[in-house]
Design a protein around this nucleic acid. Structure first.
Length: 447
RNA sequence: CGGAGCGUAGCGCAGCCCGGUUAGCGCACCAGUCUGGGGGACUGGGGGUCGCGAGUUCAAAUCUCGCCGCUCCGACCA
């Protein structure tokens, strides 16, 4: 059974709700995650994921993983601790500066807590791959990173320790690398859409190699850290469906061409004149959160680290690489920034920690208890993630908790409606409620 | 790394300026009673190295110095 599936009684769960907001939390996502008992700060920029937050994180990772796999990438897992020598090969050991957490082991060997994995993946690649026949290859992992930010802030949005999905592509030449890039580009569009987010690829710093092969995937949110500018039509673009053929070079290129055809840039790459040339009603100037970043960097690491492959002509050459990052832990915060109200979080269903929450409005009463138990057992049997609020609290407190933690569907079971043989199904997203029989509710929520 | 601020019960805070019974309040927590559709009322309880360390003083949460931790603004960044 999928470990993410599971029904839970609140009386047996660990959900430390805070009624007051801890004073350090300034932005909505941080505030709500603390109040909803999702995370706990252990040090500046370092958080423990409590059970509710962990469930969301895992659901995000599962979707990220599915879309990476669909696009042809292959998952592995590299360690968090890396030897410094690897980084000396690329020249980044000195260059990275104080953001890198440096460690000495008991034998005085220089180690580090990985802020990223280009060096290690290149070392893995060069150990085994010698021929173009083994290409294309894209390897990814989802692993904790540490970057010793000068100023961590905004909770999970800018932590020092964070979870990152990083993928690395290997191709014989630029044409192959561009297709690899396009695969990730489309996979990212799909990933963010499935997480309930509208992402816009924006031109980003292209790195030392040049060209225009670097994009940041941005979602619009008032509390975003970056100032962004884009064409309004992006907000209505159709995201590629699950049947997209990732091996079809021309099809993928067409999708990427379309998604890069209109103006979109963060403030660093902003071209005020080009933006001003857009029709006034098409100009979107807003704040944005970076949720993904992809780039092609050619032979930047393969050349100094001698990751060479033989082409059809028998000549060895450095492999062309790209890297592609998504921050699942940041996404937890980003999704909340994009979807909440004064009462709490409004989880998009695909990432909600539970899909359904049963609220027993009169705990201890024979009729409501029995109705709740039946619903709970039936939902659990269908494998629906259900949280049963079976604690002896007043109805008002249960409503507040349910809205705070943002479960998409609430089933209100109270004596008033139960007298008519009905329960009330409330949708968190828009607050709409509907009276129906328990059987109808079951059928509806199991659909 | 520049600037500003904060550390008193699990959370939010008062007390500090002007040193002096037993450090206080709200929420939360425990026991109980009444309750029951938007964070309920009452009764009774438990919980504190006042961030840490020195110093001044008859006496320090309060004054002085040092340190640590955290937050916010800016510069920098997945």
């Amino acid at each position: 059974m999928n470990r993410l599936c599971g029904a839970m009684r609140l009386s047996r769960y660990f959900l430390p709700i805070l009624r007051d907001t801890p004073k350090e939390a300034e932005i909505a996502s941080h505030r709500l995650m603390l109040r909803a008992g999702m995370i706990r700060q252990e040090a500046a920029g370092i958080y423990a994921f409590l059970p509710l937050g962990f469930r969301v994180l895992q659901k995000i990772c599962a979707i990220v993983r599915e879309e990476q796999d669909r696009s042809g990438a292959i998952e592995l897992l590299m360690p968090t601790i890396q030897p410094a020598d690897l980084w000396r090969e690329s020249g980044r050991y000195e260059a990275y500066g104080k953001e890198m957490l440096r460690i000495e082991d008991r034998h005085d060997r220089d180690m580090l807590y990985g802020p990223t994995n280009e060096e290690m993946i290149t070392a893995i690649f060069r150990s085994y791959v010698r021929s173009y026949k083994d290409l294309p290859l894209n390897l990814y992992h989802i692993q904790w990173k540490f970057r010793d930010e000068v100023r961590p802030r905004f909770g999970l949005m800018r932590g020092r320790e964070f979870l990152m999905k990083d993928a690395y592509s290997f191709d014989l030449d630029f044409a192959g690398a561009r297709h690899a890039y396009n695969r990730m580009f489309v996979a990212y569009l799909r990933t963010f859409a499935r997480l309930g987010l509208r992402s816009i690829p924006m031109v980003a710093e292209s790195g030392p190699i040049g060209g225009n092969l670097s994009h940041e995937f941005i979602i619009l949110a008032d509390t975003g850290e970056s100032e962004v500018f884009c064409h309004r039509d992006y907000l209505d673009f159709q995201v590629p469906g699950p049947d997209v053929d990732f091996d079809n070079v021309a099809d993928l290129q067409a999708i990427v061409d379309r998604w890069t055809s209109l103006y979109a840039a963060t403030s660093e790459k902003h071209d005020a004149a080009a933006f001003a040339a857009l029709p006034a009603d098409k100009q979107v100037s807003a704040r944005g959160i970076e949720v993904g970043h992809i780039f092609y960097f050619g032979t930047k690491y393969s050349a100094p680290m001698k990751a060479l492959v033989a082409g059809p002509d028998g000549v060895e050459r450095p492999v062309h690489m790209g890297s592609y990052g998504i921050g699942p832990s940041r996404l937890v915060g980003a999704i909340i920034e994009a979807s909440h109200d004064d009462a709490g979080i409004k989880w998009p269903e695909p990432v909600a920690p539970f899909r359904v929450m049963i609220l027993n409005l009169k705990q201890g009463a024979a009729d409501t208890d029995a109705a709740c138990e039946q619903l709970y057992a039936a939902l659990a049997a269908k494998g629906i993630d259900t949280l049963y609020h079976d604690v002896d609290e007043r109805p008002g407190a249960k409503f507040a908790t349910a809205d705070l933690i943002g479960i998409p569907w609430q089933i209100l079971v109270g004596p008033r409606s139960l007298a008519e043989g009905k329960v009330e199904v409330k949708r968190r997203a828009d607050g709409t409620r509907e009276l129906m029989s328990p059987a109808t509710a079951l059928a509806r929520l199991a659909a």
